[in-house]
């Protein structure tokens, strides 16, 4: 089946098998390997991307479902050599260790702050329900989100 998906502001038309998952399309077809696969039951969130601006687990969506939509992956966040404020906050607060969950964490929390510019600690933890990190104990991830929120306040 032919699909046309705008990925990171680039319109891409490809033939895909109907069963192709969006994450496999992103990683395999487009070689955007920043989006990761950590599970086979849609629970770890390592594969989180934005579809039309909203965070989605790309292992839970078929590539054909993304036809005609806009997808943003972790590779799109840095602009002109400047980290996105959420990326910068993760670095500042040591919100990552092995880095495997990180792209998903960042994409997910970018979406969180779009919805709630100043989330409380429980709101952040609640939002991250679908993202598993085995390295950080979440402490510094929560701090990174708080840090980013405080920096973007009023901006």
């Amino acid at each position: 089946m032919q699909v046309t998906i705008t990925v990171n502001n680039r319109s891409i038309t490809r033939d895909v098998e109907a069963r192709t998952l969006l994450v496999d399309f992103i990683r395999g077809e487009l070689a955007l390997t920043g989006t990761h696969v950590g599970c086979d039951t849609s629970q770890c969130g390592a594969c989180t991307v934005l579809v039309d601006g909203k965070s989605i687990k790309s292992c839970t969506m078929l590539a054909v479902e993304a036809d005609g939509h806009e997808v943003s992956t972790i590779e799109s966040l840095e602009k002109n050599g400047e980290l996105h404020p959420m990326q910068a906050a993760f670095r500042e607060c040591h919100g990552l260790q092995c880095g495997f969950c990180t792209p998903g964490m960042v994409m997910s929390t970018v979406d969180l702050l779009q919805n709630n510019a100043n989330p409380s600690e429980p709101e952040i933890r609640e939002w991250l329900e679908g993202n598993i990190c085995r390295c950080t104990g979440y402490h510094n991830i929560v701090k990174a989100v708080q840090h980013c929120a405080s920096g973007t306040k009023g901006a």
Partner: peptide, 23 residues
């Protein structure tokens, strides 16, 4: 000193190279 990590930039921008990324 709590210096920020050298490895973070590649992980934060999706440029980490994990085994499954290798083709």
């Amino acid at each position: 000193q709590p210096l920020k990590r050298k490895e973070d930039h590649r992980f934060l921008t999706g440029r980490g190279k994990y085994t499954d990324d290798i083709v």
